[in-house]
Design a protein around this nucleic acid. Sequence first.
DNA 1: AAGTGGACCTGCTAGC
DNA 2: TGCTAGCAGGTCCACT
Length: 271
Amino acid sequence: MPELPEVEVTRQSFATRIRGARVDAVRLGKPLRWPLGCDPDSLVSQSVGEVTRRGKYLWLALERGGLLMHLGMSGSLAFSTATGLPGPHDHFDLVTTHGTLRLTDPRRFGAVVWSSAQDAGTAAKLLAGLGLEPFDPAFDGAHLHAALRGRRVAIKQALLGGEIVVGAGNIYACEALFEARIDPRTRSDRLSRARCDRLAEAVRQTLARALELGGSTLRDFRDAHGMAGEFQLQARVYGREGEPCVRGDGIVRRIVQGQRATFFCPGCQRR
DNA sequence: AAGTGGACCTGCTAGC
DNA sequence: TGCTAGCAGGTCCACT
């Protein structure tokens, strides 16, 4: 579910409220993608610091380390002072003096991983090798062009890979390629510098716009206040197979790349 | 090294 | 109405 905008919207919706709280209890549900990596009780009494984001990961700083959180495909976080009894898909509760942070994740591709200040362990491995943040000024056409050199994969898959730029998942990768008028099947190393300029800009614009709108609500995305996003109303190609292109250049097609659906307009998106 | 496909898990929906 | 196949926002890992 959550791509960068959804993760960032989630972060913003509880970061300030949880800051300075003290952990009272931790409750675990079913196993997530990775084990927590510590005794849950060892988190109790630690105070909560900043909540930051790297790619689609959230980092919740605690006194002696922190928690690296990922929402996977179906995860969402809620932060509330009136958290009810856990349901079948509630797999992590961080009960604090300011409220309870709860991860709900039906498919359990998400994760919450402890990382101590001394030994970052699994968390460090997960963050290693991530590409630039899309809003980092260093992410531009020149960077993209250089990073794509020698890569023969389709540009769509290079964007999704996350080693060049993080944050664009399946929806926003499709949308950004549409904005940049680039065929998602284009071989990465065949993109001119000028097209890389356009694509880098399109990635930033697409993510920024989704962020302003509060993220996507493809199914049931909610931020930690329970607010729905509105980007779905803005998707120009994603999920629009068979519909006329909004530019009027053809009919939106659906293909499969790397076992993921890709939507694009063969009329205005060129190789 | 880069590319490919499988794996993880559950819920929803389209189609029969 | 009820069952089943197929699909879903991510990304790690093993293998070629």
